[in-house]
Amino acid sequence: MKIEEALAHCDIPCKIYDPIVIQIAALTVVRIIDIIEEKKLDPSKSEDSAELARLTLEKENQARIVKDETRIIWGDYFKEPQIEAFPDIHSLVHSIMLQGSKCKQSLARENAEKLVDLVNEFSEIFWKTKEVETSRVTAPYPPALEMVVPNLS
């Protein structure tokens, strides 16, 4: 008797998701705010003005990356099983969207630190959906804030 196969696999390519991209972007927002603070740039000087514009543009860009990449993982990776297991994911993602915008609008370091906190929370949930344990470590580069890393062995 020939028995037909029933597929229990997911064989489409390009399913590589990792929140590290979001984490690095969020840390970069903090770092840029620190650089702006450290440099004491004088906007009345053309050279300082140009540098301030460049730093501000990159801060905007990194905050946008946080929002874009979070939306991609939330929208493409999280499906019914993950959402059932972590029903708060929607409100967390919404909070990241709002906090990302706050970081674009201001130079307040606490806004960027809050963004890092939210992104860490998102990363922990992401790895839990894959049953991967995580640790909270200090980033080995400025601004040396806490970040979530998967315990991969």
Binding site: L7, A8, C10, K15, E84, E131
Partner: peptide, 25 residues
């Protein structure tokens, strides 16, 4: 032909999920 677990049922259609959360279908 696919085997999955039913996650919700409506009048004319249904949704399914995998048991293995490590997969993404």
């Amino acid at each position: 032909t696919v085997v999955k677990r039913v996650s919700s049922i409506k009048k004319n259609y249904f949704r399914v999920r995998s048991d293995n959360l490590k997969t993404d279908s």
